[in-house]
Amino acid sequence: MTDTGSKEQARKQRPDQARGEQFVATPLAGRQETRPQSKVGRPLVEIQKLSKSFAFRPVLRGIDLSLQAGERLALLGANGAGKTTLLRVLACLTRPSGGHALVAGLDCVHDAQEVRRLVGLVAHQPYLYEELTALENLLFFARMYGVTRGRERALSLLERVGLARRAHERVRLLSRGQVQRLALARALLHEPRLLLLDEAETGLDEAGVALLSRLLAEHIAQGGALILTTHRPEFAFQQADRLAMLKGGRIVYQAATAELELAEVRHAYQEVVG
């Protein structure tokens, strides 16, 4: 598929032409060929007909998605579109009402404990223990995950996220950006294969975003995969290989970033968000 052809295909799949129906654009054939062989095979994440309702109010309606190891997917959509719920299902924090979500072939409901070992989550709220120090937080979660040589791992991660000098300070004394960096370190503590980022760039300054990008690139280079949600099309465009936009619990737009211009992403996002 030529570059012009794929862009044309992406344009054809714009949400204004979808008329509210779910459709899945897959202009990914060109990218499949460039992927390393080890990354091709059974997808790391397989989501089939996934639905979730809260008190009879549907939040996810028949989501189908798959993600290979080494791949980066960005989910965009307005508030309430179902992005966070989708991540919570993959993190085994919420049980789906229907369909299946598999991580490395393991079911997020029936094999939840095994899936939890494979998944790391960073949310826009850091959810750390404020009265504990940065190091104590990481040591606690290292024990929860049964990380061997947890102290060494925690100290090394604090160094990587630029918090080594503040390791012994209580979390409530750290700035918003530093707390978010610490949350990122915690998510990487057990070396997850799938990293879920729910508006993780929130509260990070330019240097923080650069650090996040670097850590994500390292994670991908090590064979991991990531799914991120964001309200910033440019961030999604920079960080992801593939974009999926949700509206009313359905995927209404999906395309590879390599085959799009940033302006097209912005335009599609505006149309989805309304």
Partner: peptide, 14 residues
């Protein structure tokens, strides 16, 4: 209230 129970439940803890 702190949201940290979710993070605790996210861990593979019995």
């Amino acid at each position: 209230e702190g949201g940290s129970l979710d993070r605790l439940l996210l861990c593979p803890v019995d």
